[in-house]
């Protein structure tokens, strides 16, 4: 078992407790998560590291209320969202979580600004869409449709869309997975910037070990279990990452 983390004294905003997830694939049960305990502390940037099939996306989906665990608890502050119904899960995502995906998932019929506005229209105290786009450095491209933007630009729009609602938690699933190195670095800089300037608690999934250097904390998953949970003594700026 990994050593208890010294940061556990800090308050966890979101935490998985003994979470398991079993999928049935045909006649076979796939154990994607086998009793995972992962807290997410307020304000930190956590990197969730692991090879493909290790269960990291499953964990992120459960933390983000896109999926429910087979057993265990998921505590948002002191509330167990693992037991919540569909309506509560939707409310939770709407009010507290921002998502960034590998394939951006922008709405093709809306411009960059409108994609951001899509979210700001349904939330309580959003950023102005222009402000959110300024944060990711896309002020001059905000009236373009997704098809007119490069992959990196689209991903930055996705980040702007995720942070525009000023979520407490930002969950990024392989945000650089579809991008080249240089563009990927630019996207990571934006995520780092959001974490620092807005104080948004952030979790980034990746299978690229070097990215872990930019995190406050690194959790490694292997075969559905937590293999390690450590804090970085010294954070590296995304611009200095190499792989």
């Amino acid at each position: 078992m990994p050593e208890p983390n010294p940061q556990s004294e800090r308050s966890a905003i979101l935490a998985a407790h003994d979470v398991t997830k079993v999928y049935r694939m045909g006649d076979v049960d796939v154990h994607a998560l086998r009793g995972v305990n992962v807290p997410l502390y307020e304000g930190e940037l956590m990197v969730l590291l692991g090879p493909s099939g290790s269960g990291k996306s499953t964990l992120l989906n459960i933390l983000g209320a896109l999926d429910v665990p087979s057993s265990g608890r998921v505590l948002y502050r002191d509330e167990d969202i693992a037991a919540a119904g569909e309506r509560e899960l939707t409310e939770f995502r709407r009010d507290h979580v921002g998502f960034v995906f590998q394939f951006y998932n922008l709405v093709p019929s809306l411009t960059a600004r409108e994609n951001v506005a899509l979210v700001t229209e349904i939330t309580e105290r959003p950023l102005d869409p222009s402000e959110a786009l300024e944060l990711v450095g896309l002020t001059d491209r905000m009236h373009h449709f997704p098809a007119q933007l490069s992959g990196g630009e689209q991903q930055r729009v996705a980040i702007a869309r995720a942070v525009a609602k000023q979520p407490e938690i930002l969950l990024c699933d392989e945000p650089t997975g579809a991008l080249d190195f240089k563009t990927g670095i630019r996207v990571l800089e934006v995520i780092d910037e959001v974490n620092r300037s807005l104080g948004t608690t952030t979790a980034v999934i990746t299978h690229h070990a070097p990215i872990a250097s930019m995190a406050d904390r690194v959790v490694s998953l292997s075969d559905g279990m937590v293999a390690s949970d450590r804090s970085n003594e010294k954070k590296v700026s995304p611009a200095d990452l190499t792989w």
């Binding site: 939707t90 009010d95 998932n105 709405v107 899509l118």
Partner: peptide
């Protein structure tokens, strides 16, 4: 379906 799933993820309700 992709757009609509994205919206659901972003917190849009089924009705919306």
């Amino acid at each position: 379906s992709r757009d609509l799933a994205t919206l659901r993820v972003l917190g849009f309700t089924r009705a919306e």
